[in-house]
Amino acid sequence: MSQNGNKQIDPSLRYFFEDKNLAFVATLMKDGSPQITPTWVDIDNENRILINTALGRIKQKNVTRDPRVAISIVDRNNPYHMITIRGEVIEQITGEQADKHIDKMAKKYLNKDKYPFGTSGEKRVLLKIRPIKVSSI
């Protein structure tokens, strides 16, 4: 199954984002080379992909300069089933919304009510990604 253009995520593929699957998020470094990070992933009601990170981290700096991203998610229950997305970061949300979201992700992935890995002075940022091309097998 493949979809092209400015796309929504097909409802049959939302489980990739709703289950405890890790997403591998690729961004572009200043010199154009790729950088990839495994991370927690979420999807909102508008089918925007959500990645929570901290201000100043490499992927956050990269998408501020160049909003293009590629994301790959493998079904943790069937490694031969996967989805890839090319998209762009359309918004970076900080403050209470980003803080609440990282706690939601900690509950989903770790079954903890509060994100346990935060550091003093860390500011969370929620990257909202618009899918442009979606492919799955």
Rank of each mutant, 00 (worst) to 15 (best):
G121W: 00
N111K: 10
S12L: 04
P34F: 02
T119W: 01
G5Q: 06
D103G: 08
D75I: 05
F17D: 02
I43G: 05
F24Q: 08
Y80G: 08
I129A: 00
P11A: 03
R68W: 04
T37D: 05
D75T: 08
L22V: 10
Q92V: 14
T37E: 04
R76V: 13
G56F: 07
D42T: 02
L28A: 13
R14Q: 08
V134F: 00
A106K: 03
K112M: 12
G32M: 03
P131L: 00
G121M: 00
P34T: 09
G118W: 00
F24I: 08
E46W: 01
D66H: 07
S33C: 03
I49E: 03
I132E: 09
Y80L: 09
P38W: 01
S120L: 10
P34I: 02
T53V: 11
T53I: 08
P38F: 02
I9S: 03
S33L: 05
D44N: 15
N77T: 12
Q35Y: 15
E91A: 14
D10C: 07
A106Q: 05
K123N: 08
V25K: 00
I85D: 01
L127W: 05
E96L: 13
I102A: 11
Q97I: 15
M82K: 06
I137R: 11
A26E: 06
K133I: 14
T27R: 01
I71A: 01
I137N: 15
N47D: 15
V69K: 01
I71F: 00
L126N: 07
D44R: 09
Q35F: 15
A70V: 04
V41T: 11
R48K: 11
K108I: 06
L50V: 10
R86C: 05
T37Y: 07
E122I: 10
I93A: 09
H101S: 08
G121S: 01
N4Q: 03
Q92P: 10
R86K: 08
I83T: 04
A23T: 04
V74H: 05
T27A: 07
V74K: 06
L22T: 11
R124N: 10
K133L: 09
D66M: 02
N21I: 04
N6T: 13
Y109M: 12
P79M: 07
A23G: 04
I85V: 14
N21Y: 05
P34A: 06
R14H: 11
N45L: 15
S2T: 14
T27Q: 01
Q3K: 08
Y109S: 14
E18I: 06
Q60I: 09
A54P: 07
S33F: 04
I58W: 09
S120A: 14
E18L: 09
I9P: 03
A26C: 15
G87P: 04
P116I: 00
P116E: 00
N6L: 10
F117N: 14
I129F: 00
D10H: 14
K30T: 14
T37R: 05
P116W: 00
I73T: 01
L110P: 13
K104S: 10
G121K: 01
N52V: 13
L127S: 12
Y15S: 13
